[in-house]
């Protein structure tokens, strides 16, 4: 398996999502580990802008050639943006999961919930535990 890229400065979840916190707003995608595990991404289904999500709720679906995986909201809030480019170019998740492959932005994120997210070191440990 290739090296797993886990940028410092992002926050992470046990469900292999990353969260970029920007003053009450959170941009969300899946990690390098997730996209490597999934393989070729061929379909991404995202919610409507304006949808309210609670932390832990499934908000969308990502499909590789072989597998279907749910996406879970890492924080509660209102979906303020979705990456519509992924409809035409789901492979962007494989090519640039922390950049062009971003999925949604959530507004009005509760500060208390941010604390429960993993930092890069903690997520690194979570990944290592699952590698054989």
């Amino acid at each position: 398996m290739d090296e797993i890229d886990i940028p410092e400065g992002l926050r992470y979840t046990n469900e292999d999502e990353w969260v970029r916190l920007e003053e009450g707003r959170a941009v969300i995608g899946v990690t390098d580990f997730a996209q490597q595990q999934l393989g070729d991404i061929v379909f991404v289904e995202l919610p409507e802008v304006g949808t309210r999500v609670e932390r832990g709720d499934p908000f969308g679906v990502i499909e590789s050639v072989k597998a279907v995986s749910d996406l879970y909201a890492p924080v509660s809030g209102t979906i303020s943006e979705i990456n519509g480019e992924l409809t035409e170019r789901p492979e962007a998740v494989n090519e640039d999961c922390y950049g062009d492959g971003w999925m949604i932005a959530i507004e009005s994120v509760d500060a208390a919930e941010q604390v429960s997210l993993l930092d890069a070191q903690a997520y690194q440990k979570h990944v290592a535990e699952r590698q054989t």
Partner: peptide
């Protein structure tokens, strides 16, 4: 570098690089 999975009771490679 095959990613090994169970198929019909055998451990087999589902992919080496990318299915596509």
């Amino acid at each position: 570098g095959g990613r090994m999975v169970e198929f019909a009771g055998f451990e087999m490679p589902v992919q080496y690089t990318s299915i596509l």
